[in-house]
Write a protein that binds this DNA or RNA. Structure first.
Length: 292
DNA sequence: CCCCGACCTATCACGAATCG
DNA sequence: CGATTCGTGATAGGTCGGGG
């Protein structure tokens, strides 16, 4: 780990004279940095423990009494029987993944890095277990359920979604691969992607154009046609919508068509410049300090 | 060859709109 | 009314090309 310290009047090689500030770097061995490392790696060093009261209450509610705490050590075990990665006579095994999980009710609260392996083993060993997982903010979009079931099948951008899938299928991706591809996209990005593709999908539908036309070696022509068609339809905030459409169609067509970089197609460039579709660069910081 | 500005994508954040 | 979805702006971080 590297620590960068800023202090005044310390002799060193990197001196910013005018400010009288010195910056120097120092190596801190991992052994002397266990607390910070444990936090950043969620490692076993100074481990964390699920609140036992809440856990008991939860287990009581689902009427499940596990007999083995598979990922613990002596200071944070929740049950008498446990596995520990550390040297420990009372633990029944050193590595829970190396013992069979059959015929025992398990409490599984694995380190984050082991979650995929644990799930695989759960399926393989057909276990009965309580598996405790962290609730990461970024994953909630895929993990949580909604009470608003009416939205299923009424997705506002379902044409865009369908177009994406069609394009992916036309490039010979199978449906499992497409599902995984979509699942890997940030939910927010996926929403905008669908929104950006929907006008293109509508353009194809209204003009009876085959989706595979987009995959040839001149997809930029179709994109500019679609943008022009979309512009003629008018409506509020047209320029912003065209900008979004261009951005996301660019990305998707670059992914799936024979043209690798639609953005750099001089046709698209010229058209977007003329229509003011380029995003104006703004200064990143409101104030520029002149340190000289 | 390096620096800098233009441009672009992905993501975060937040208020408004929508729906049960 | 609260949960969820949508629209939009801001920005980190990246590529690229022109000019010195």
């Amino acid at each position: 780990m590297l620590i960068i310290t800023i202090s005044q009047n310390i002799k060193n090689n990197t001196c910013i004279n005018n400010l009288d500030i010195t910056i120097y770097t120092e190596h801190l061995p991992g052994l002397k940095n266990s607390t910070a490392d444990a936090l950043s790696r969620l490692s076993w060093i100074g481990d964390y423990q699920f609140n036992p009261i809440l856990l008991n209450e939860a287990l009581h509610q689902i009427n499940f009494q596990p007999m083995l705490d598979a990922f613990a050590h002596k200071t944070n075990k929740q049950l008498k029987r446990y596995c520990s990665p550390q040297e420990d006579n009372k633990a029944i095994a050193r590595n829970a993944l190396n013992i069979p999980w059959t015929n025992v009710l398990l409490l599984l609260y694995p380190p984050i890095g082991l979650i995929p392996k644990v799930i695989q083993k759960m399926i393989r060993d057909q276990v009965e277990a309580v598996l405790i997982l962290p609730r990461w903010k970024g994953n909630e979009g895929t993990l949580k359920t909604t009470t608003r079931n009416h939205r299923y099948g009424k997705d506002k951008y379902k044409e865009g979604k369908q177009l994406y899938r069609d394009l992916a299928e036309l490039t010979k991706l199978d449906s499992a691969a497409i599902d995984q591809l979509i699942a890997g996209i940030n939910p927010e990005t996926w929403r905008k992607r669908r929104a950006g593709l929907t006008p293109l999908a509508n353009y194809l539908k209204q003009n009876n154009i085959n989706t595979s036309t987009l995959l040839g070696n001149k997809p930029d022509v179709e994109l500019v046609n679609a943008l022009a068609w979309y512009k003629d339809r008018g409506g509020p905030k047209l320029q912003q919508r065209m900008r979004n459409m261009k951005m996301h169609c660019d990305v998707v067509l670059s992914q799936f068509s024979q043209m690798n970089d639609i953005n750099n197609s001089s046709l698209v460039k010229t058209y977007s410049k003329g229509q003011g579709l380029s995003i104006q660069s703004k200064p990143r910081f409101p104030t520029i300090w002149n340190l000289q």
